[in-house]
């Protein structure tokens, strides 16, 4: 709760400071000025309906809200970022986009209160294109311990990697993976931040397809979906903020 109050105070200060120079947010989020300064300062931002975020209007489980980003018709995308304006941890994930990896990602995230969830994609000329949707929260997903923290067995299951690949008719290979990790935010009393912070997807030869930077705003035992423009097996490797490594190899 303290975090939230701080966040809201910041929002108000910011509105006073930079209102005249800033981009108009079509979602009318009270958090937008902070988000703009923090993630897009001095950069060109375009709100564009071709960047879509699918998420439920209302969170059934505030610890695990499904989200999916898809982008149609924007070329030369190099980065994709997912941001929740009004959560204590605003950035959910950030990843590289290239010829091998489509600008699409599925994920599960925590919500603390009603918030926009936005996707921002950056093209090679530096422009950011943004789209998003609001998600309402009935509870407070970020400041109660995740169930794994109470589960005495989680330590034995830490690092488990489940995954599968689907070859689709459109030539895209869908990768879905589930990684066992408590993803503790550090915002709950006496439980330090403990979360996966990087994930890489590699091809058979060991070349990196994409790298993700992940925050604890992502749900416990993250489930992620990717659309790959390459065939063949995919290696997953990642690391949490305490240095534990995860590795997996998924065959088509």
């Amino acid at each position: 709760m303290n975090k939230l109050i701080c966040l809201m105070a910041g929002v108000c200060l910011c509105l006073v400071g930079v209102a005249h120079a800033a981009t108009e947010d079509p979602m009318r989020s009270p958090g937008w000025r902070i988000i703009e300064q923090r993630f897009f300062a001095d950069q060109t931002v375009v709100f564009d309906d071709r960047v879509q975020v699918l998420a439920p209007q209302s969170a059934e489980d505030t610890f695990a809200v499904p989200g999916f980003v898809r982008v149609d018709g924007i070329e030369d995308i190099e980065r994709l970022v997912v941001i929740t304006d009004l959560n204590p941890i605003q950035r959910v994930l950030e990843m590289d986009i290239n010829d091998a990896v489509k600008p699409a990602v599925g994920f599960r995230f925590k919500v603390q209160q009603r918030t926009p969830v936005r996707a921002a994609v950056q093209t090679s000329d530096g422009t950011w294109y943004l789209g998003g949707t609001w998600v309402d929260a009935a509870g407070g997903g970020c400041t109660a311990p995740s169930t794994a923290s109470a589960d005495p067995d989680w330590a034995n299951r830490l690092g488990e990697v489940d995954a599968a690949l689907w070859a689709r008719d459109d030539g895209i290979q869908r990768l879905k993976t589930r990684l066992v990790h408590p993803m503790d935010t550090g915002l709950v009393d006496n439980i330090p931040a403990f979360y996966l912070e990087t994930l890489e997807l590699l091809d058979e030869k060991g070349d990196v397809l994409t790298s993700l930077s992940i925050q604890a705003a992502m749900s416990e035992n993250p489930v992620l979906s990717f659309d790959l423009a390459v065939d063949g097996p995919v290696r997953l490797q990642g690391r949490d903020n305490q240095g534990n490594r995860i590795r997996g190899m998924v065959e088509p």
Partner: peptide, 21 residues
């Protein structure tokens, strides 16, 4: 949509396999 949130996680989990190395 609520039912997807309730029921889908277990159903989709059964489509994944252990690929840990």
């Amino acid at each position: 949509r609520r039912s997807v949130a309730h029921l889908y996680p277990d159903i989709e989990r059964a489509t994944l396999r252990d690929v840990r190395e």
